[in-house]
């Protein structure tokens, strides 16, 4: 067990280092000059040189990279030339917004997805399955921005039940936070819910015909015990994989959702940084995003071993 964890942690660290190199090189490969963006198109060479010197842009790339890594390791992601604020501080403000939105959206997606997926598999070829399939199809095919606008029209304007915009942290006022995040999180979560539903359904259909489910029924267990305790438990590994893979899509989906509901989150920060060629800020947000991906992957892999003991002890795959 511990060897497996250690190996995955080391692998993740290596991936993270590679990610910083790609981020660093990738941004510098983009056309455009940050000093010129900052100083304006008509600036003289002396001003440009001064700006480059201030932000270390005149040094060789390897030196810039090493300095960047050295500082990043201590939590210093540089200072944004655009806002003048430390990048880490801006990210520190934006990240909790996106995290709360994402966690809420995932919770909604998992509950809806697994619930409808199980129902669809158990009630196969009956109206309940058709209903669940129809909802999943809608969830997959309706784009976020349209669904979000319709939700605002319906629930914030026609029937003003929920606020259309703004953010309240769950740690300040849980009720208001719930009201503010319910609509964006639902909008963000439906696509994922649909994907989870389809995966759960097919994994459950497999599991329900498995020999061990016949054994469970032959033992006289109740339907709920058979379906939830035996079949669903075996299906979860597929579901976790999908959720893990889809979290990336969720982060990019959050960009749109945050714009729509005017949430001061990570997505908005990213868009602003890209449009102004704010190198330190882009580096910072991409680094944090990459770290998030890697950590999520690590967590998913470790979750596998909790759910499936065959991975934990390195037993043979059946």
């Amino acid at each position: 067990m511990s060897r497996y964890v250690l190996r995955r942690v080391v692998e993740s660290a290596v991936t993270l280092i590679l990610a910083t190199i790609v981020v660093f090189a990738g941004i510098r490969a983009l056309p455009g000059d940050p000093a010129r963006t900052l100083a304006g198109e008509e600036s003289d060479p002396a001003t440009l040189a001064a700006i480059r010197a201030t932000y270390g842009l005149d040094e060789p790339l390897p030196v810039q990279y090493l300095r960047y890594v050295q500082k990043a390791a201590t939590g210093d992601l540089g200072r944004s030339p655009r806002t003048g604020l430390p990048v880490a501080e801006s990210i520190g403000h934006a990240l909790p917004v996106t995290l709360q939105l994402a966690v809420f959206a995932i919770a909604i997606a998992v509950l809806m997805g697994i619930g409808t997926g199980v129902v669809a598999a158990v009630r196969r070829r009956r109206p309940a399955e058709w209903g669940a399939n129809a909802i999943a199809l809608l969830g997959l095919s309706v784009p976020n921005f349209w669904f979000g606008q319709m939700a605002i029209l319906a629930l914030a304007i026609a029937y003003p039940l929920l606020p259309a915009s703004g953010f309240v942290s769950v740690f300040e006022d849980p009720v208001e936070s719930f009201r503010h995040l319910l609509m964006p999180a639902t909008v963000l979560g439906t696509g994922l819910a649909a994907i989870i539903m389809r995966q759960t359904r097919s994994a459950m259909l497999d599991a329900l015909t498995a020999d061990y489910v016949r054994t469970a029924r032959a033992k006289g267990l109740s339907s709920a015990q058979v379906v939830l305790g035996h079949a669903l438990r075996n299906s979860l590994i597929v579901v976790i994989t999908v959720v893990g893979l889809q979290l990336g899509a969720l982060i990019s989906g959050a960009v749109v959702t945050e714009q729509l509901f005017v949430l001061p989150g990570f997505g908005k920060l990213t868009i602003d940084a890209v449009f102004t060629r704010d190198y330190p800020m882009i580096q910072g947000v991409v680094l944090v995003t990459a770290t998030a991906y890697i950590v999520i992957n690590l967590v998913v892999d470790l979750l596998y071993s909790v759910i499936d003991p065959r991975i934990r002890v390195g037993g043979p795959a059946l």
Binding site: T215, A218, H230, R233, P309, L318
Partner: peptide, 16 residues
């Protein structure tokens, strides 16, 4: 009570 043919697949792999 039942005993089935395939002991390899008749037990649930994720439960002790």
């Amino acid at each position: 009570a039942y005993i089935f043919q395939e002991p390899m697949t008749s037990l649930n792999p994720v439960l002790t």
